[in-house]
Design a protein around this nucleic acid. Sequence first.
DNA 1: TTCTTGTATTGAAACGCTTCAATTTATCGA
DNA 2: TCGATAAATTGAAGCGTTTCAATACAAGAA
Lengths: 342, 342
Amino acid sequence: MPTAKKPRPSIQDVARLAGVSLGTVSNVLNNPDRVRAETVLRVTKAIEQLGFVRNDAARQLKAGRSKTLGMVVLDIANPFFSVLARGAEDAAAQEGYSIILGNSSDDLRRESRYVSLFDEQRVGGIIISPVDAATETVATLRARGTNVVVVDRHIDAAIGCSISVDDFAGGRLAAEHLLSLGRKKLLFVGGPLDFQQVADRLAGATQAVKTFEGTATIEHFKTTALSVLAGREVGDKIAALPKSEWPDAIFAANDLLAVGLLQAFMFKSQVQVPGDIAVIGYDDIAFAEAAIVPLSSIRQPAALLGSTAVELLVEEIESASSHKHRQITYQPELVVRASTSN
Amino acid sequence: MPTAKKPRPSIQDVARLAGVSLGTVSNVLNNPDRVRAETVLRVTKAIEQLGFVRNDAARQLKAGRSKTLGMVVLDIANPFFSVLARGAEDAAAQEGYSIILGNSSDDLRRESRYVSLFDEQRVGGIIISPVDAATETVATLRARGTNVVVVDRHIDAAIGCSISVDDFAGGRLAAEHLLSLGRKKLLFVGGPLDFQQVADRLAGATQAVKTFEGTATIEHFKTTALSVLAGREVGDKIAALPKSEWPDAIFAANDLLAVGLLQAFMFKSQVQVPGDIAVIGYDDIAFAEAAIVPLSSIRQPAALLGSTAVELLVEEIESASSHKHRQITYQPELVVRASTSN
DNA sequence: TTCTTGTATTGAAACGCTTCAATTTATCGA
DNA sequence: TCGATAAATTGAAGCGTTTCAATACAAGAA
């Protein structure tokens, strides 16, 4: 159990030292224009002398509002999400808000925990990059009066705001690009399919293959994670197959998987990329370009996703009566590099 | 200005609906063993029915403690820090705490802002990966009664706890490795030197060169940031020099710089790595191995830094009277890959 | 039935701050 | 100097919850 600490100076201590009322100290903190300069000085000196830091719990309890936004991301170690968080934070600072981050690590329990923590803290609003379908979470939060925006996943605009990228189009783009190289035997690497993003990317790629005027196939190699390690494992398995069974192109559900595949192929086996197998990832994280084989990728505008989420959330907070929920979808972009060149 | 929202149900509403006192609802939330099962059920139903979420500001104001820890990192988009944050978070969860993250983006003002925000929120404690010398910040926080641990930088144990890696040793290791390859014309790329980590890495490398039994030199190319972009810019400048002026080895202050250098050399010029110039980075981020030339690096145990910081902080919080400040320093490790092979 | 003891519940007080109507002070014009 | 007005300050009330001493209730023993 935490041991007792000496009590911190309160606004009352400041008032006493400065010889003014509680209300005047509060005015110095919140409405200094209403206070004579001489009084401001006196109070400010008392604050410094005492090392007073106001208690936000008390402020918030009385004032009933917060300039802090909570954000829950799936995996802070994935550059896609850290760039997204950076974008959000810069936009929040512009609007006079601060973002505090929680990391769910793809774990529904942790996500739930952060969502509850932020709700108890009565943050101004919550931005969620959800582990799974967020419909129920969002509906519950909104019913409770909590502002919420979903990012990197679309939900019905009747329920709440969301910002995402058209992953179906992204998957199609990736597959079309591979087909345009003359590749016929495509493999999609990614999972779990509970992740709507993954399912959409696969669906888009599958459609491209189906509508391709020529013969081509696409298989699916499921993974339990979207990590470098998972990619490496898949790469090892593929490399261990007879060459005649290799795919001639791999569409990885994200860049981390693709990087892992590259590692397995280039370091531990004789698979040539793109000679034997072309590889394309998804996200276009900062390190895709500097990969051992510069990685082609489908670019998602991560920073823009983050900043747009903040803009929508702030609008919802500050203009609740006129705010209309929106589902914003950005288009992904093909970025071609060595891993899929001919 | 935020518009008024319908008031959220309070503990009083729950009490009224369940036909019990405020104190009983509080007991159901906090000490359910003190309440008859039948009463617990009644109250729990009322809570669900009303969608009650207690107000943490009120709880904290009265109870005076928090199970939340604040953490301020330098750059969430740098995998070193995101792995460090992940390590911290896992350790915190083990101890029954939650970590909320703030990102200073190498900006003193932002750091200060998050520190103040967390202090106002009366978090249990603050972990800081500081922008610059944290001595004053830590002393101020501790004088105010705020628990604090510094990570990735050492401060005097008389002031507070810190966890870091011996960057001087790391710098020496890197330079010794380069010298052992027969490289004679070393270049250190990194800055600003306000960053003690950078200064220590340079100092260690400089010492290795000085004590080398043979002729070798080390120059310093200052950068204003530790980013891929900054590394690219330096790489371009070096590549534009006459070949006779190229260094034969580069020690980059971190892996992001090294990745940028690799990009400039391999994509845009004729510099061969390691043939013309060997390149070693620092941090051993997850992508170092998958870089276009697998990058040698000095490994810092990022996750361990994070988890140790939490352990020290929790100890300081929960055992304040017996807690002794410590300065824990981990030893870095050389990881050799293709970028410095012979 | 009464008394004792253990269990369950109650409700007043207070955490630290903001807010705003009431009061005080200062300034200006007649 | 007096009256009116504007500026500055005051201080009571209350935000939502926890805490714990007081009270009520239940069960068992004499």
